[in-house]
Write a protein that binds this DNA or RNA. Structure first.
Lengths: 348, 348
DNA sequence: TTTCTAAATACAATCGATTGTATTTTTATT
DNA sequence: AATAAAAATACAATCGATTGTATTTAGAAA
């Protein structure tokens, strides 16, 4: 069964102008509520536009104005709690300033990230907020944005030595706090699950771990640092490695919750008691962290605040294109959420 | 410290044409690899374009072609596992067909949903894939899309009596399976956490629940159905209500995992044993469902498949604009993931 | 070499809205 | 009523790419 569809309505300002026997520039100004048009004419235009079912073509408008009032956001995966809450913060701040947000995910692939940047630039977004993929090692792929003068602000995962502003989590402090917390709970042999080393965030979390050990007089042993992509399976692998170590491990600081939780599940299956035998700290405060038993101690990154701040800075830069400000670098402290995975009985 | 920024490069095909002393139409065709241009000229154009740092302006291109090769997706929240996996499926299918995807979240607000639709239409996306907010009661706000001839496909949460294609989860079956599973585990007094009733999905899950009771000779009692928005706090509230009921409840079927998990946590705190005292089934297979103890039995909706299917149908409709096909309605069965929250000791 | 055809390129209109300038209309002033 | 000033509207160019048609060029056949 097929019907011929009624032709799509493609009313333009010219059609309205013709219907009212006035000029399309007046229609345009009326629709934009310009002071150069009488109230009376505005009313006539608005009424006719409504009658005719007019809908502005933003492609044409944006082309003419070379401004889209849109910013693009690229994150590795929207499903991660930290990223989706950062996006919420970005949307909030953008909405206040009358901007739209285009959300994109790189799926941790460099090639996709590059492609997305080019598409956003080709669509003339006014700015880009970016948290890089695990495969990204430098900022060369931002060249297309730079060439077009599109402002870019990093958040959380960033590249080093670039001339872009960034809003970062204080990963060093987070790593330090996590580790020192474990030490204060009595842990001595603490394993660290780290991520891809080209990402500053993992480097810094590790440095915090090292510093906390040092400050507390515990020697750093590189064999206790496990590098991986911190996926679920990596957590399980890491847990297996721990059980095979000659040394009796009594603490884990994982650079993310996903692998911490996977490790906990595996360890529990093997009869290890948490926190009694091994205490665990994660990073990011995923929803699951509050659900697992014992509830996972973790670092909350207030993604919302980071997203808002990144957006503010982006707008500053968009509105100050003519002058180049020294790139800003803002660091936001994560807060340690102490939960049962580190609550030794002795504390009671 | 301020510097004057180098002017943004705004090279157009006209600049390339001038540099090569040829016409811009030839440049355009060369860049689009048209057969009307010699290999030699194409090579010259490509080289020069690269040299000059040319980047196509998609606003202009799309305006002229009145085609954006972009589809918009609107979901209530990207952070929900079902939606982010549906988006993954959509992006996969779209990418294969050379389309870009714009992801938007309504945050469960009708006004935002309406606004997003209008913006997408104004930006002339080629189609929209939509899962409505909890506040949405009908499809009137899709008028702007209909007027412009923009194809729309619903998935999961849809409106009734509309002329749009939809890809749905078999919510009735899911509700039925969940409830019957509880009954088979020996539950007799089963509470159902339902969602906003204007949403078909919750209506259908409830109908499945009723049908399973009926089939198994258990009388339906409306006082055992709790309506809410199924947020975390609602789960806690519902759990409290259960504890206050005169009847001894031995099973819960929640229309989503979020509230099921919140309820479990509260019940456990009150000393209720799950599944021994009360068995619980959720819906959606959120990551936390596998993490809570006991692991939550739930219905997996294969969001990825639903997303892919919705995209396929959307493309069919985009490519067949001239004829109106009868709207399709595809139903995909969810699968019951049996986990410990319903594993009665007697089963062992 | 001339002529014809096909291939390559140039010309110009177009997509729909915006905006600086020019023109007309209205209002105020004398 | 005449004139100046202000307000409202019209005109036309423009944003950057695409595309139907016209023209030029190159190659083949006579």
């Amino acid at each position: 069964m097929k019907f011929i569809v009624s032709q799509p309505n493609n009313i333009t300002i010219h059609d309205i102008a013709e219907a009212l026997q006035i000029n399309s520039s007046t229609v345009s100004r009326a629709l934009n509520n310009s002071s150069r048009v009488t109230q009376k004419t505005k009313a006539r235009v608005l009424k006719k536009a409504d009658e005719m079912g007019y809908q502005r073509n933003l492609l044409a408008s944006n082309l003419r104005k070379s401004k889209t009032n849109t910013i693009g956001v690229i994150v590795p995966r929207i499903s991660r709690h930290f990223f989706s809450s950062a996006i919420a913060g970005i949307e909030e701040a953008a909405y206040e300033s009358g901007y739209r947000v285009i959300i994109c995910q790189s799926m941790e692939q460099f090639s996709r990230e590059k492609d997305l940047i080019e598409t956003l630039v080709a669509n003339r977004v006014d700015g880009i907020i970016l948290s890089i993929s695990m495969e990204t090692t430098n900022a060369k792929h931002l060249e297309s944005a730079r060439v077009k003068g599109t402002s870019v602000v990093f958040f959380d995962r960033h590249c080093d030595g670039t001339n872009y502003s960034k809003v970062l989590n204080d990963d060093f402090q987070g790593g330090f706090d996590a580790t020192e917390h474990l030490i204060k709970q009595g842990c001595q042999n603490i394993v660290h699950f780290s991520g891809p080393q080209q990402l500053k965030i993992y480097e810094n979390r590790k440095k915090g771990y090292q510093q906390a050990l040092k400050k507390n007089g515990i020697p750093y042993r590189s064999e206790l640092v496990f590098n991986s992509k911190l996926m679920e399976k990596d957590g399980v692998e890491n847990a297996k490695k721990i059980l095979q170590l000659p040394l009796k491990i009594d603490g884990i600081f994982s650079a993310n919750d996903i692998s911490a939780i996977a490790a906990m599940q595996h360890l529990k299956k093997q009869g290890i008691q948490i926190p009694k035998d091994i205490s665990v700290v994660g990073f990011s405060n995923e929803p699951s962290a509050a659900v697992i038993e014992p509830a996972l101690t973790t670092l909350d990154q207030s993604g919302r605040k980071i997203g808002q701040k990144a957006t503010e800075i982006l707008f500053e830069e968009i509105n100050n294109k003519s002058v180049l400000h020294k790139p800003k670098s803002i660091v936001i402290k994560p807060s340690l959420l102490q939960r049962s995975s580190t609550q030794r009985a002795s504390d009671h």
